[in-house]
Design a protein around this nucleic acid. Structure first.
Lengths: 155, 155
DNA sequence: TAATATTAGTTACATATGAAACTATCTTAT
DNA sequence: ATAAGATAGTTTCATATGTAACTAATATTA
């Protein structure tokens, strides 16, 4: 008489989606706390600042694409940054629906304060890995990203 | 005359916390949609089921530790699972504050339906990597986890 | 060029989430 | 044995978030 077959076990601790989620949350939380505590910024506001610093005059829609934020999140982050005076909205001459977003001088100042801190945080995080391992991790993550969302390319 | 020094640039696309977050969200969303669409379960309810299947009679507190969920999230997920009849609360004899949680037969049935689907989803995701790469990824993630939260060990 | 469809972005609403307060029970120290 | 503290778990409340509806402007099509 054949024995009752047991289902394949699933240990959360070795299940990749779970591990990714936990690791990502642990990392994000550390750095979100930094942005918030030191500068009163949410992680989404920081992302908006980062891409705006990189591409002055960017539109909200493009911010969404570059940061993987949906348009409502972008709208709210932008509104908040304008509120505190870090971002400025300039009407676009050729398309009245969109605005060209730029950091204000205050915004640039804050941005330049945050960047080294963020990079230091990252550096500390990856200091556990050799340069080679860091490169390998980036490569493997890229493959996973492609496998998980072949349609939109994430980076 | 020395030139004005430019701050180190920060490209979101190569910033590890950002990449981790985007990748994790992309993966989680795919699989959360599966749990929800097919079984009406949230990802947290699924996690609770998974550890309860693994350790019948587990307490809510221990579920929290094993899943990295806070106690409020556990409480809500448990309440929801009891509501739909997948989980049962048994009063603990030796400590009246805690309950021993077990899956009901219905819960076990659903669990055994989900496991192969979840594993298949994971398998599809990592199929882009060789066995060796998969092992390497797991190892590197373990190092990062330790670096990011040395205090609590995540897995 | 008028009608229709798309797009950029915001607002409104419903739900999800986390922090803090709370209840009940158990543990520790005197 | 009793008071003070710690722990398990729930509830409350304020905020965050996503979906859908909306406004305004541009693009398309007939």
């Amino acid at each position: 008489m054949p024995e009752k077959t047991h289902p394949a076990p699933l240990r959360l601790a070795t299940f990749l989606p779970f591990r990714l989620s936990v690791l990502s949350n642990a990392v994000s939380q550390r750095i979100a706390e930094l942005y918030d505590r030191e500068f009163g910024l949410s992680i989404w506001q920081w992302r908006v600042m980062a891409v705006t610093a990189d591409t002055p005059g960017i539109s909200a829609t493009e911010i969404g694409q570059r940061t993987q934020m949906d348009k409502v999140a972008v709208s709210r982050a932008v509104a908040g940054l304008i509120e505190v005076g870090y971002l400025e909205r300039r009407p676009s001459t050729d398309d009245a629906r969109r605005s060209n977003l730029v950091l204000t001088p205050a915004g640039i100042g804050i941005y330049e304060l945050i960047v080294p801190l963020a990079l230091a945080e990252e550096a500390q995080l990856v200091s556990a890995l050799s340069d080679k391992e860091q490169a390998e991790l980036a490569r493997l993550m890229g493959k996973l990203a492609k496998a998980s969302s072949p349609e939109r390319d994430l980076w």
